[in-house]
Structures are given as C-alpha cells and as structure tokens.
Design a protein around this nucleic acid. Structure first.
Lengths: 111, 111
DNA sequence: CCTATAGTAAGCCAAATGGCTAACAATTCG
DNA sequence: CGAATTGTTAGCCATTTGGCTTACTATAGG
C-alpha cells in the first residue's frame, strides 16, 4: 500500500497540533475569515496565520481573499489518502486479531 | 468534541513520519524484533530505535525484551481516539455537504 | 483624503526532530 | 571463557516548529 506520500506526511503533521485541529473543527462547520478564527485563540495573529498556512500547504484548507478579509474553507477531499491509510491498517490488524481469535478458539476446542 | 488530548497529538505526530508508518505497517502484519525491522531501513540502528520509542510513547506499539532481542507489537487500541476524531470530522462536513446539496437542489426545483 | 480594520512580512528565539557516530551493555553459542 | 549478536546510551549536529514583536500593506467607510 502507498506509504511514500509526502502528502500523507503533511496531513498527519498538520493534525498533530491542537490549534490546527481546532481550526479544522470550526471550518468543518462553516467557512470563516481569519479574524473570526482568531477571536478565541490564545496567540498572536501572525502565529495563527502560520497555522493556517500549514493547513493550506497540505490541502486541508483553501483560502481566498474577499475585500480585506481572507476566507478559509475546509477541503475534505484532502483527507481521503490519510483516511484510507488508517482504514487499511485497521483492516490488516483486524484480520490478524480474527485469525488469532480463531486460533485460540481452535485450541480450546481441541482440549 | 474532545480535541484537547495530548494523546491525539502524539499519535498524529507519530504517524506523520514515513519511517514510522512503515514500521506500523510491518507490525500490523506480525510482531517483529528490532533487528528484523531494521534490515530494510536506510538509517542507523539508534535512529530506528528512536522511532520505535516514539511509537511506544504514544501507545501505538508495545515492546518486550526476549533474550537479547526486543520484540515489538502493534497496540491497535491506541488508534481509537485518533480514528474517532477523524470519523467525527468527516461526519460533520459530510452533513454540511448534504445540506449544501439539498439547498442547491431546492434552488433548482424553484427555477 | 484619512483613519480604522484586517491581514502580511520579516526576523528573532527556544525547544523539538531526525539524523549521525562512538562507546557500552547483555545474551548466546562454540 | 571468549567472541559474535543484538540492543542501548550518550552526545553531536542541522533543520523545523511554534511562539513572539515590530513594522508594513491593502481595503472600507466617513
């Protein structure tokens, strides 16, 4: 399975920060301007901007300038590859757990 | 929803590295000793050890010393919270996309 | 035109990350 | 016992990260 993807690296890294996950959660509900996202955040504006850039760079968020505001919006598709990777792993180890369970049951039956 | 979890931070961070994802993929299939994991890796042993420690610290992998080998094994449960977070976000934005679709359909019907 | 608003750019800093080498255990096997 | 195998510890290094401040641009509104 595909693992050598810089895109997956960047998405996982983007989501490894609480601030960025909070941004994603807010944008999942609806698009927002930078200032709107900023209001409840305990950090300076330029710091928040950096986080938004990280989310943009990995494709999770798209932004556009409207007047003097910058509107940020989720791009759910960017999560497909990442999501698929997790699902695949789950499938593999679930299968392994099933085989182990079958094995244990088989042992018990033979007793 | 829960976002303030250092555990989620650590799991996402652990998975943001290609080497560590490769380790997870191999361990999803079966447990392995450090040396066995090391063989195909293009890096020094101590470097690999550090990656294994990262996976251990976030609970994704458990290890035990057996003779002079250290056996590493997946701990799938550690992914539950992370997986749940992703699933929740997907649910939220899918709902949003559905509402948007309904809205567009409604507009078309009125025409 | 002038001022307030909203965002950007540049640059500094401490801590964390991912890599290395060299030296040091701890087990196993002949 | 002595040597080979398998990790492990310690320490060095360059880069990245996430935070800050200060100064600047761009648009909206009076």
């Amino acid at each position: 399975m595909a693992n050598n993807s810089p895109a997956i690296d960047r998405v996982f890294h983007a989501l490894s920060d609480q601030t960025r996950r909070a941004i994603v959660m807010r944008l999942s509900a609806r698009p927002s301007a930078v200032g709107e996202l900023f209001t409840p955040m305990p950090m300076a504006l330029p710091t928040l901007l950096k986080h938004i850039r990280v989310l943009e760079d990995c494709g999770l968020v798209a932004t556009k300038k409207v007047g003097r505001e910058r509107i940020c919006e989720m791009q759910p598709d960017a999560l497909r590859a990442t999501d698929a990777w997790l699902a695949q792993q789950r499938a593999v180890w679930d299968a392994r757990l099933d085989r182990m369970e079958a094995y244990v049951l088989d042992l018990q039956t033979r007793e």
